[in-house]
Amino acid sequence: MTLLNLIGWIGSALVVLSLLQSRLLRLRVLNLAGCAVVFGFNVVIPNWPMAVLNAALALINGWHLWRMLATRHDDRTYEVVEVPADDAFLTHFLRFHGKDVSRSHPRFTGDSAAHPGSTAFLLVNGDEAVGAMQFHSVGDGVAQVDLDYVKPRYQDLTPGEFVFRGSRYFADHGYHTVITPPGMLKPYYGRLGFKRQGESYVWELPDDQRRPR
């Protein structure tokens, strides 16, 4: 096998691998890389119809990637919709994604009665629920988060970051401190400026987000 053929096979493998991804961002990145490699391969051969096809696919992937990255912190992309902790759709959402929820939140039981007065919300993109958060007050303006979950296809886009940085949800509900779920696997809070405290992270809302008391 020549080096040129090997490059062509690598490009094809990247395209196939991209279609096996459940995460949208990863799918687009791998597909863009595969199309770029296959485009170069077909230019050298040359096979112009396939080169043009892969160039077009690479441009489409690039456009989608730009939109994903440019809008993931935009408050017009995501919205917080508050629901009761025992809401029927929330229960269905968490049951449907139960295995994935338990992988990232091994201590979450889904029992809304465990913390009377628990609050929950769905994080939505348009009319699609992409994640859910459940928390309860521990008093004195402190919220203890019990669940912070985003379904796999959106996890690389970090919509949870919008809740803390782009949304005023906690501030508008009178909280000044948020404690993240203890024992959460692969937490992302460190890069948001949260401070590690035992098995959790603590976020003190910035002064410009705090509601006057």
Rank of each mutant, 00 (worst) to 15 (best):
residue 27 L to Y: 07
residue 177 T to A: 11
residue 15 V to N: 05
residue 191 R to H: 11
residue 170 F to S: 03
residue 177 T to D: 13
residue 203 W to N: 03
residue 100 D to E: 13
residue 69 L to F: 09
residue 189 Y to T: 02
residue 46 P to N: 09
residue 3 L to R: 09
residue 120 A to W: 00
residue 55 A to W: 05
residue 148 D to K: 00
residue 9 W to T: 08
residue 92 H to L: 08
residue 186 K to A: 15
residue 73 H to G: 08
residue 81 V to C: 06
residue 179 I to M: 13
residue 25 L to E: 13
residue 4 L to S: 15
residue 108 F to E: 02
residue 108 F to Y: 15
residue 94 L to Y: 00
residue 84 P to H: 10
residue 104 S to M: 09
residue 20 L to N: 05
residue 103 R to G: 04
residue 124 V to Y: 00
residue 42 N to M: 07
residue 31 N to G: 05
residue 98 G to W: 07
residue 105 H to G: 00
residue 144 Q to L: 10
residue 140 D to H: 11
residue 159 P to V: 01
residue 181 P to C: 14
residue 7 I to L: 15
residue 77 T to V: 06
residue 93 F to S: 00
residue 101 V to T: 09
residue 184 M to F: 12
residue 16 V to S: 11
residue 110 G to S: 07
residue 196 R to A: 15
residue 100 D to Y: 02
residue 76 R to Y: 10
residue 125 N to V: 02
residue 193 G to I: 12
residue 8 G to E: 12
residue 32 L to R: 06
residue 146 D to T: 12
residue 27 L to C: 09
residue 10 I to V: 15
residue 91 T to A: 10
residue 74 D to H: 10
residue 77 T to P: 01
residue 2 T to Q: 14
residue 171 A to P: 06
residue 19 L to E: 10
residue 91 T to K: 05
residue 29 V to S: 10
residue 205 L to M: 11
residue 28 R to K: 13
residue 197 Q to K: 11
residue 182 P to I: 13
residue 51 A to L: 12
residue 159 P to E: 01
residue 114 A to G: 04
residue 60 I to G: 09
residue 27 L to A: 06
residue 169 Y to R: 01
residue 163 V to F: 05
residue 112 S to E: 09
residue 45 I to W: 09
residue 180 T to R: 04
residue 96 F to G: 02
residue 129 A to D: 04
residue 108 F to G: 01
residue 120 A to P: 00
residue 111 D to L: 06
residue 135 F to D: 02
residue 74 D to S: 14
residue 185 L to W: 13
residue 48 W to Y: 12
residue 162 F to C: 01
residue 30 L to I: 04
residue 21 Q to T: 08
residue 170 F to P: 00
residue 19 L to A: 13
residue 189 Y to L: 12
residue 158 T to F: 11
residue 188 Y to A: 05
residue 115 H to F: 10
residue 10 I to M: 15
residue 135 F to R: 03
residue 181 P to W: 03
residue 145 V to Y: 02
residue 96 F to S: 05
residue 116 P to G: 06
residue 83 V to K: 04
residue 139 G to D: 08
residue 158 T to Q: 10
residue 138 V to F: 07
residue 170 F to D: 06
residue 203 W to Q: 07
residue 110 G to R: 01
residue 109 T to S: 12
residue 126 G to Y: 02
residue 31 N to R: 03
residue 137 S to T: 11
residue 5 N to Y: 13
residue 70 A to K: 09
residue 97 H to N: 14
residue 183 G to T: 11
residue 37 V to A: 15
residue 65 L to H: 06
residue 42 N to C: 12
residue 29 V to R: 14
